[in-house]
């Protein structure tokens, strides 16, 4: 597009202008708009302080670092929209990785290992979903308990030690295609699929309905029990996927390898605009959220800020995002 200031005599520029305005208004109305602006401002500031931040190497690094948490964040977003929360993800990832690592070291075929890992996560999540919604329990409490249980099982299984993979199963986490790490493709693919599910499927629309008002959804004909089990199972699939990638990337299965992942992913989803009360959240928002948190820790490393300060910065961003979110909600 020519950016001359001479006004064109014909009206061909008109439609593109209105398209531009359309996108501008849509962007402002979009809840993720302010977050995207904040992220861009942050990137610009960091890049001015330390140009290496925008190097191809570093961008690739950030994307690789956020992909595991990103995949789980998408699962967590689905859970949060449906009015649930899952504190057990960190240790479920660890447990699944330990199980898979053990099987790999027994020289099981990769197919069996993968299916076992995914199957374990899906079935454990579906089971907890069933128990939670059938008995009408608080997901917060139950998954808090499960977090401890998974941790205990993983520790018992491994005696607290790491299980090295001895260069097996490396392609998934360390492979590249067109110089871009495979996990990044998987993460972006997960985002795209989740976006499609939320936006264009009846399941996705019901997810918001169930999260906002469980009883109203039940009365509108949604089989809430079956529905929630499906949400948990879907979430479990993503957790299993993340476990495989993480294990492959770092080359070990360890009972503490993903400790703290639950808080990281909840924080990312909340920064992205998901509401713990349910009924609100977007894939794009969570994508930005996880990216923002990843960029913060990466950038601080690059400019040499101590890890201790990073925690404080992380907390400030999470609380700041919640405050910003509540302000925009008031205005509308």
């Amino acid at each position: 597009m020519p950016s001359r200031s001479i006004p064109p005599a014909n009206t061909t520029a008109q439609p593109s202008q209105s398209v531009l305005r359309h996108f501008a208004t849509k962007f402002i109305a979009n809840r993720s708009g302010p977050l995207l602006i904040a992220l861009i401002v942050y990137i610009v500031v960091i890049a001015l302080i330390e140009p290496r931040f925008l190097s191809l190497y570093n961008i690739r690094n950030v994307m690789l670092q956020v992909s595991v948490a990103g995949i789980v964040t998408i699962g967590m977003t689905l859970m949060i929209i449906s009015g649930q929360i899952d504190l057990s993800v960190g240790f479920l990832v660890s447990l699944a990785a330990c199980v898979m690592a053990t099987l790999l070291n027994l020289d099981m075929p990769v197919v069996v290992v993968v299916l076992t890992g995914l199957g374990l996560c899906v079935s454990l999540q579906a089971l907890s979903g069933f128990v939670i919604s059938r008995l009408k329990l608080e997901s917060f409490i139950v998954t808090l308990g499960l977090m401890a249980i998974y941790r205990g099982i993983a520790l018992l299984m491994t005696n607290g030690a790491e299980i090295p993979l001895d260069r097996k199963f490396q392609a998934l986490g360390r492979g590249r295609w067109l110089e871009i790490p495979i996990p990044v493709f998987i993460f972006l693919g997960v985002c795209a699929i989740a976006w499609f599910i939320l936006r264009h499927t009846v399941f996705g629309r019901q997810l918001y309905a169930v999260g906002e008002n469980n009883e109203a959804a039940h009365l509108a004909g949604v089989n809430v029990l079956k529905f929630k089990i499906q949400v948990y199972a879907l979430h479990g699939l993503l957790v299993g996927l993340a476990a495989m990638i993480l294990m492959s990337r770092i080359g070990v299965g360890s009972p503490n390898m993903a400790a703290g992942l639950e808080l990281e992913t909840i924080a990312a989803a909340v920064v992205g605009g998901a509401a713990l009360a349910g009924g609100r959240g977007t894939v794009f928002g969570s994508f930005l959220g996880v990216l923002f948190l990843g960029i913060i820790s990466n950038s601080m490393n690059i400019i040499g800020v101590s890890t201790f300060w990073q925690y404080i910065m992380l907390g400030v961003v999470v609380i700041g995002a919640v405050i910003a979110g509540s302000r925009t909600k008031d205005k509308s």
Binding site: A209, E212, N213, A216, A217, L219, G279, R280
Partner: peptide
């Protein structure tokens, strides 16, 4: 408001 509507939607 209690079980008829999804108020925020």
């Amino acid at each position: 408001k209690i079980d008829g509507l999804f108020l925020n939607q």
